[in-house]
Lab assay of single mutants.
Amino acid sequence: MATGGRRGAAAAPLLVAVAALLLGAAGHLYPGEVCPGMDIRNNLTRLHELENCSVIEGHLQILLMFKTRPEDFRDLSFPKLIMITDYLLLFRVYGLESLKDLFPNLTVIRGSRLFFNYALVIFEMVHLKELGLYNLMNITRGSVRIEKNNELCYLATIDWSRILDSVEDNYIVLNKDDNEECGDICPGTAKGKTNCPATVINGQFVERCWTHSHCQKVCPTICKSHGCTAEGLCCHSECLGNCSQPDDPTKCVACRNFYLDGRCVETCPPPYYHFQDWRCVNFSFCQDLHHKCKNSRRQGCHQYVIHNNKCIPECPSGYTMNSSNLLCTPCLGPCPKVCHLLEGEKTIDSVTSAQELRGCTVINGSLIINIRGGNNLAAELEANLGLIEEISGYLKIRRSYALVSLSFFRKLRLIRGETLEIGNYSFYALDNQNLRQLWDWSKHNLTITQGKLFFHYNPKLCLSEIHKMEEVSGTKGRQERNDIALKTNGDQASCENELLKFSYIRTSFDKI
Rank of each mutant, 00 (worst) to 15 (best):
G58K: 00
T157D: 07
L47P: 03
G262Y: 02
I109R: 00
G111N: 00
G227D: 10
D247H: 05
R110S: 10
Q216L: 06
C215P: 13
N150T: 07
F66T: 03
C234Q: 01
I122P: 11
I158V: 06
R141M: 04
C264E: 00
I146M: 10
D248L: 07
P36K: 14
I82G: 03
R297E: 10
T211H: 07
L128E: 01
K310W: 14
L152V: 14
D159E: 13
Y273R: 05
H307E: 09
V305F: 10
E168G: 02
L326N: 08
L90Y: 02
T140L: 07
Y94R: 13
V144G: 02
G333W: 15
N257K: 05
N135A: 09
N309K: 09
I222Y: 09
H302L: 04
I222N: 07
C335K: 01
L332W: 08
R298N: 06
G132F: 00
G188N: 09
W210A: 07
H226E: 08
N150S: 11
L327T: 10
C235N: 01
W160E: 00
N309W: 13
C286A: 02
N295W: 14
C335Q: 04
L96N: 00
V253M: 05
C243S: 00
E168R: 07
T85S: 10
E49I: 15
E130G: 04
Q61T: 08
Y272P: 00
C315K: 00
L81D: 00
D277A: 14
V265P: 01
K193N: 08
C219V: 03
P36S: 13
C196E: 05
A156N: 15
Q276D: 13
D261I: 06
V173P: 10
D177A: 10
R69Q: 06
R145F: 09
I62A: 01
I122K: 00
I312S: 07
L106A: 00
M65A: 08
K191S: 14
I306W: 15
K217N: 11
I158R: 06
V173M: 04
N52W: 06
L326Y: 01
L50F: 06
I109G: 00
C53V: 03
H214M: 13
L63N: 03
N257W: 03
I84S: 00
E231G: 14
I62R: 00
I122S: 05
G262T: 06
V167A: 12
L99D: 00
D169E: 15
P104W: 00
M65C: 04
V144P: 01
D178L: 12
L76H: 13
D261R: 07
C315T: 01
N117R: 12
M38N: 09
K193F: 02
T140K: 11
L332Y: 01
G333Q: 15
N202R: 06
T140N: 05
R141L: 08
Q303H: 13
E49Y: 03
G183E: 14
C228N: 04
C243W: 00
D177P: 11
E147A: 15
I56H: 02
D247K: 05
L60M: 11
P104C: 01
G183K: 15
L29H: 08
I158F: 05
L128P: 00
L164T: 11
M65R: 02
I158M: 07
M65Y: 07
R113L: 12
E314T: 15
H28E: 13
V55S: 02
G142F: 00
S296K: 08
A156H: 08
G262P: 07
L90K: 01
R69V: 14
F116T: 04
G32F: 12
L164C: 15
L240G: 13
N135K: 13
D184L: 08
M137N: 09
G32R: 08
L174G: 08
T85R: 08
N322T: 06
L240K: 04
K129N: 06
S296G: 13
G262V: 02
E130W: 06
N43L: 07
N175W: 09
C186N: 02
E147V: 13
T85A: 05
G232I: 02
Q204G: 15
R141S: 08
T229M: 13
L131A: 15
V144L: 07
R113I: 06
L326T: 05
D39R: 04
R297P: 07
K294M: 02
Y273F: 13
C228E: 01
Y94N: 11
E124P: 00
C196N: 04
L60G: 00
D247W: 03
T199M: 03
T107L: 03
N170L: 08
E57V: 08
G111E: 00
N43F: 06
L64Y: 03
L90I: 08
C182D: 10
T250L: 09
N138Y: 06
R141T: 01
E168M: 13
Y171L: 04
D165Y: 10
D75M: 09
S296T: 11
D39N: 11
C235W: 01
I185P: 09
P197S: 07
P36F: 12
Q216S: 04
V108F: 02
F116M: 11
F285V: 04
P330W: 05
V206A: 04
C243K: 00
L174W: 10
D159I: 13
P187R: 06
S98Q: 02
E180D: 07
C228L: 02
T211Q: 04
L88A: 01
I84V: 04
T194S: 04
D39K: 15
E238K: 04
C182A: 14
F78Y: 12
I201T: 03
E97P: 06
D75S: 08
H302M: 04
S284N: 05
C35T: 00
H236W: 02
G227R: 04
N135V: 01
E207V: 06
R110F: 05
N170V: 09
L174H: 13
S296V: 06
N309E: 12
P269A: 10
G32K: 04
H236T: 03
V93L: 13
G318L: 11
C328N: 00
I306C: 10
C328W: 00
N150L: 09
R297W: 10
H48T: 06
L63K: 12
H236M: 02
L89M: 15
L289F: 09
C235V: 00
V108M: 14
P316G: 01
R41G: 14
N175R: 06
R113P: 02
F66H: 15
C239I: 00
S98P: 00
V93H: 12
